[in-house]
Amino acid sequence: MINSEETNTIIQKPKLPDSPEIKLHEKSLSRTMIIAVFIGLILITGYTLTHLDTAGVQINQAFKELITTLNQMFLQPNAGTDGVTLLLQALGSSLLLSILTTIIGAVFGFLFAVLASKNLTNAYLGAGIRVVMAIIRAIPTIIWALIFSIVCGLGTTAAILGLSFHSVAYLTKAYSESIEGIDNSTIESLKVTGAKFWVIIFQAIWPTIVASFVSWTFIRLEINFANAIAVGAAAGAGGIGYQLFVASGMSFDFHETGFIVYLVILVTFVLEFIAVKIRRFYLNR
């Protein structure tokens, strides 16, 4: 008789010589974190998109409409009833607004950055400035502009103050990160000569960070230009943003909207071009 044990062994696959599974990586916090964050974000997105309120709009229909609008904007732009001169003036004033607030942001941002950098000042002052700046940054530019417009009235002054506040806070952070990246020996070598604080700042710190200073300032200029448009539209502060708001939201002249958008894109391209040139100049020195 054949016992069942034998038949079993024949059917069973021969076992591999026992070699342990070779692991390719250990559990690491960083890997787990990346995967967890991605999964978390995707789940949130899935939930949000399935619960999105579309106000009963026929999506297909709306997309068709959107295409028509885009077509009017980008393929048949014209200056509309406002005329080219007025639009160019508005564009200029928005650009000036952004330049002005960037200058304010750069000057005060640098001063605060020096006072807030961990390797330059005492810890309490630095921490204090950083907290205040974080709070200022947390409030959107548009809300700053609206707040100031209660006191100064709707208009340029409120817009300038609103944009400046956010710029100062943003640039303080950016500059102080550059300053904190400076090698400590540079600072110490001047400290031992007995140089005064602000002498050290302008003889050692400034030349070291000038390239990144210029970089960040121009990044902020581009942001401020976008913000100047936003504030013009949403806080009635004038400029090209206001014209854009009127054309697209009140008179529904999408040809003019397109024209304005092209003007804005043109300016941002020019700003970007100048930024690249100047950055290269400072990097090569």
Binding site: T54, A55, V57, A62, F63, E65, L66, T69, L70, M73, A233, L244, F245, S248, G249, F252, F254, T257
Partner: peptide, 8 residues
């Protein structure tokens, strides 16, 4: 603004 026009 243009999205508001189509998507309300």
């Amino acid at each position: 603004m243009i999205l508001l026009f189509s998507f309300k």
